[in-house]
Design a protein around this nucleic acid. Structure first.
Lengths: 216, 216
DNA sequence: TAGATTGTTAATCGATTAACAATC
DNA sequence: TAGATTGTTAATCGATTAACAATC
């Protein structure tokens, strides 16, 4: 175990490893090599070994990695050996879609509160959770020990919601709104804005003008 | 204008610039400096100047960038000076949420077809588009000149859908399913899997065990 | 023992940032 | 002219990959 600073690029690959290891575990595969992981995940095997070695000596020379053991270790690294409570702010279509994924998220991360500004939404139930007004955000986040917030409100409300999440002592935010949020440095933000992703894909459509329809 | 290879990191920042420039344009701000862009977008001004300089000399020394002109140029770079047709595959909650964003996406990128495997969904309308069976995917993609596919089907169907999109001649895929898709190198893939994002956020919740509730 | 595969160092590659001459 | 800001080169920083001794 080193105590170097771990880069975000490394941290973001850990859940990818975890996801594939969970599949292997379901299939009762006992061990896996960095080479096989690399093939399946489109990553360089040396990179995978290096990523894992930041956190400990998890593998066995000549053998590879024990699947169950590695799952346990990665969960520990990601703080997923305890339940992590999540708040969802914005009960629109996207928010509802995400809350349905609650089931798919491995048990240890759970949406436990949903907030919205619209009176029409408040009091309704989303996946068995009653939608609360945003006024109650700070109080509820503190009361339930919520550590992560997901923002799915319109972009013009996103900063205000972020401010409240910060005021409530949240540790990290997943932001689906197309805005750059300003938060104190101790709060981690990941941008999950798919419009950016989608627009950038258009760049790679070279030579394509001749592919459009209606040219006859 | 250089003809160096542009890195993906640069390309992914272009839509971020574009989004902010569109805001400035609405407010009728005539010019903007790399310094101001950097402040608002949390980026280094030198990086912004360098990014833009890959594609041309868009700025004026002592003045900055003309907002309207830069918008026009970035749109051209991203191939957004023509309409780009998009197919959405998977009409579940997430797919429906995304299709609602059609309105928000600047006009030139448009979801023009929606597909699903479930008989119960086929024939229904999502944002005025009739959901078609996946069997019709290849034919429709070709007929409508669709260039980008968005995958929002369950993970176990994602590779099959990707194969069909590729067979139909698609140029790029935005993949929301939690799987690494295998496609030929000429097809561009962006992973938009938010479970990975969310799990990696947990890493940054250090010191937090004492924050959980129910410890009394 | 022979083959496989890790953990780690060194080499490479690429991306970000600083600095500044050019110039509006 | 003086101040501002670009475009670009050079310096720095960081991430990826190759290579290999250690060892199961």
């Amino acid at each position: 175990m080193k105590s170097e600073k771990i880069s975000d690029a490394v941290v973001r690959r850990l859940p990818v490893y975890l996801r594939f290891l969970n599949e292997l575990s379901l299939r009762e595969v006992p061990t896996v090599s960095s080479q096989e992981l690399g093939q399946k995940l489109d990553l360089n095997p040396a990179q995978i070994r290096k990523d894992l070695a930041y956190f400990g000596d998890f593998g066995r020379k000549g053998i590879g990695y024990d699947v169950s053991y590695l799952i346990e270790k990665i969960r520990q690294i990601l703080n997923l050996d305890q339940q992590i409570n999540v708040a969802l702010v914005g009960a629109g279509n996207l928010g509802q879609a995400l809350s349905n994924y609650n089931a798919y998220l491995k048990d240890n991360m759970k949406i436990v509160a949903v907030f919205d500004a619209a009176p029409s939404k408040i009091g309704s139930k989303i996946n068995n959770i009653t939608v609360q007004p945003i006024d109650e955000l700070v109080e509820t986040v503190k009361a339930l020990g919520i550590r992560i917030g997901i923002i799915t409100v319109p972009h013009f409300e996103a900063q205000r919601v972020a401010d409240q999440l910060v005021a409530a002592g949240i540790g990290a935010i997943l932001n689906f709104a197309p805005t750059i949020l300003k938060v104190p440095p101790e709060v981690r933000i990941h941008a999950a804005d798919f419009t950016t992703d989608l627009l950038s894909l258009a760049y790679y459509l070279h030579d394509g003008k001749e592919l459009t329809s209606n040219e006859s």
